[in-house]
Design a binder for these strands. Structure first.
Lengths: 188, 188
DNA sequence: ACCATTTTAGCACTTGGTACTAATATCAGT
DNA sequence: ACTGATATTAGTACCAAGTGCTAAAATGGT
């Protein structure tokens, strides 16, 4: 059962969208036409050849800027800090921070901002996160400016332990809350 | 200035790791050897040809079973996944992941690996982290290979809620544990 | 039946290789 | 300096999956 040219080309597009790894020969046999016809179809639809299709899939995966977390010591920009008391940082959410699918910021960026702020507020040589308790109150989107405020709630010098509460807001609405139990040591 | 065979092969590996889209001809000219030498090197190192390299990059991006999260958005490499049941990923800790000061991995990378694995394991269109509870059991250092295992512990379809426990280990020693309460929705 | 569109065929040429053979270069040890 | 071993280069035939081109054949609509 042969399709009309139009139908075939439509199906061709769908097929290649689902699976770009198909040769012309392959397509020809599935559509019961000659390889040349497939080539003409690709011309008309300006679909590149197999190798180029694969390359572009690969390049998309590869070439896109690495979305790993930045190397800088603090995620977000610290705009106010009072060591061992409180600190505030700002993080502007860009498309790099969100799921492509729905534009919602990925949790680890909010965590990273909060956690690195918690580390920064501690006035010691070594500060490590021991435990934490997070609540993602409301989804954060592209363009949002997240303002995180870290407050030191208690400090037990004996146990080298400090509790910090970080609250992140967008336009004065709380989007994230985290309690961090930090381990701290002064080296000297 | 020519390199010794050993050095060249080492560099070759690094080069192709950074950029797999390079032809033998290209490599030959950058290393100032003949194309045949490059081919021999690839043989010895069992590096596949350009097209295969590209294909594998593309296939990784495409064919995989990750639904909620495009593969390139997962922090760490997923090596096993059984949707709605469990998943495993590997993250090699490099100097990019640690505090320059002490070589200890920054918490948000462990969180990112665990959290994105939790998102990936969910067989739905949308998966967001609602709450989480983290314990950083033991410091992780440069060179460590962190193996995170996410296990779905419960699922409440009414509440669109799923609980996931992620345990991360280095050489079979637990370094991190996280409980994630995820919000999930199927769109259709 | 006629013309346009569509489809098929065939050939030369291209990339980026594999597989294989054979000739040189280079170095190490005696 | 000579001998082997190792490393490098050269060259050939071949392959996959194409492009580009020309030309013939089939099909459809009126």
């Amino acid at each position: 059962m042969k399709y009309s040219k139009k139908d075939r080309q439509k199906l061709l597009l769908e097929t290649l969208d689902k699976n770009p790894f198909v040769t012309d020969e392959n397509l020809a046999s599935t559509f019961h036409v000659s390889v040349q016809t497939i080539r003409l179809d690709r011309m008309e639809l300006s679909i590149p050849e197999l190798r180029e299709r694969i390359k572009s899939v690969a390049a998309h995966n590869f070439g896109e800027d690495v979305k790993s977390l930045p190397i800088d010591e603090v995620i977000g920009e610290i705009i106010d800090i009072d060591l061992d008391k409180q600190a505030i940082s700002i993080l502007d959410i860009t498309h790099d921070h969100v799921f492509a699918r729905n534009g919602i910021a990925r949790g680890h960026h909010l965590f990273a901002q909060a956690n690195s702020l918690a580390v920064a507020v501690i006035n010691d040589d070594l500060a490590l996160t021991r435990k934490s308790n997070l609540t993602f109150v409301k989804p954060v989107k592209v363009g949002d400016r997240v303002i995180a405020k870290a407050v030191v709630t208690s400090s037990d010098v004996e146990k080298n332990s400090t509790l910090i509460e970080v609250t992140s807001k967008v336009e004065n609405e709380t989007v994230f809350v985290g309690q961090f139990s930090m381990y701290r040591v002064t080296m000297s």
